[in-house]
């Protein structure tokens, strides 16, 4: 199996560009904004301003490229490592910070933004994407659902059930596996004996495609085709994106215990942002001033989101009882009273 590739690490094309230079610049800027958030969140965790954080540096092409192929009202069902994808589909940075600060308002997508809160358990969310897309079709709408997950999630039983349901009912679901090499410490070749994760699709009667996950154009292109299939009733697609997590699993992890520095450095040479920058330079669509302008805009956007998140007063002590049901039950009312009485 040869992974789909359009853009080489040196910025030259080995296939047809799926979008024009203006779109390439827009997606480049989005990847830069994503990485700015990622670095800021990691720094804030070290300062004690955020709880444990799961960095996604190196996976920006997977997240921005795939979401670029969605319609604004399509569903996105991702994980704790998919903040860039969620933001690009309309989820505010402020809420992503809030979630990591430990505030349930971080899980609230704005009205009209069909992005579910990040799944923290591994693998249980893909079946939700199946149900979401299926329900859209049953109600006569053509929204599709994109679900993001990692290589480790493919070992979960719920991966099998989600893929199987999607295949049987030809649901409008796009399964995008960001195979970043490790499930915490477990390397991909000990996660499954399958030669490629993409091969798993065969067992579910759907196409399985392997793609260079650090190639923005290739990711966009295969996702666009999968979205088109889903939207026209041809069913689900499984995409395995080969990428690499540059950072640790989370800010509590020491990745040096299970992988070599050389491996990280080697993957840095295939950086998804550098690759698009090289492409833009080759096509006279990049200069230092624009890069700086882009970085400054990203920095301003992220800082504004941090300020807004940190300015929000925490919930009151009894708010937890009001979030469980549409109307608090008798049990919620009693327990709220007990908390008020005794603290």
């Amino acid at each position: 199996m040869e992974p789909v590739r359009i853009l080489s690490p040196d910025g030259s094309l080995v296939g047809d560009a799926p979008f024009d230079l203006e779109e390439a610049r827009r997606l480049f800027a989005a990847m830069v904004t994503g990485r700015t958030y990622d670095h800021k969140a990691t720094a804030m965790q070290k300062q004690g301003r955020l709880a444990t954080y799961a960095p996604f540096e190196g996976q920006e092409a997977c997240q921005i490229g795939s979401v670029a192929a969605l319609r604004p009202d399509d569903w996105l069902v991702g994980t704790y490592r998919d903040a860039a994808a969620m933001w690009f589909q309309g989820y505010p940075w402020q809420n992503l910070f809030l979630g990591r600060m430990g505030d349930e308002r971080g899980g609230e997508a704005p009205a009209g933004v069909n992005v579910t809160p990040p799944s923290i358990t591994v693998g249980g969310h893909m079946i939700h994407a199946v149900g979401l897309g299926w329900a859209e079709r049953l109600q006569g709408r053509d929204r599709v659902a994109l679900t993001l997950f990692g290589d480790g999630a493919t070992s979960e039983g719920d991966f099998h059930e989600a893929m199987n349901f999607a295949g049987v009912y030809a649901t409008p679901t796009i399964f995008l596996c960001q195979n970043n090499g490790f499930a915490i410490s477990m390397p991909r070749d000990r996660q499954t004996a399958a030669e490629h994760l993409a091969d798993k699709a065969i067992g579910y009667g759907m196409p399985g495609i392997q793609v260079d996950g650090n190639d923005l154009m290739a990711i966009y292109s295969v996702t666009r085709d999968a979205v088109a299939r889903a939207r026209t009733g041809e069913g689900p697609t499984f995409i395995e994106a080969l990428t690499f997590r540059i950072g640790p699993h989370t800010t509590t992890d020491d990745a040096g215990r299970y992988r070599e520095d050389g491996e990280v450095e080697e993957w840095r040479t295939r950086d998804p942002i550098d690759r698009v920058r090289a492409y833009l330079r080759l096509n006279d669509a990049w200069d230092e001033a624009w890069e700086q302008e882009t970085a400054d805009a990203a920095g301003d956007e992220i800082e504004a989101a941090v300020a807004a998140a940190e300015a929000l007063e925490p919930f009151g002590p009894t708010a937890m009882f009001d979030r469980m049901y549409a109307e608090p039950t008798s049990a919620m009312d009693r327990q709220r009273g007990m908390l008020r009485r005794d603290g």
Partner: peptide, 9 residues
């Protein structure tokens, strides 16, 4: 799990 997705949608 699929029923949950359906309910959300």
């Amino acid at each position: 799990g699929a029923a949950l997705g359906m309910a959300i949608a």
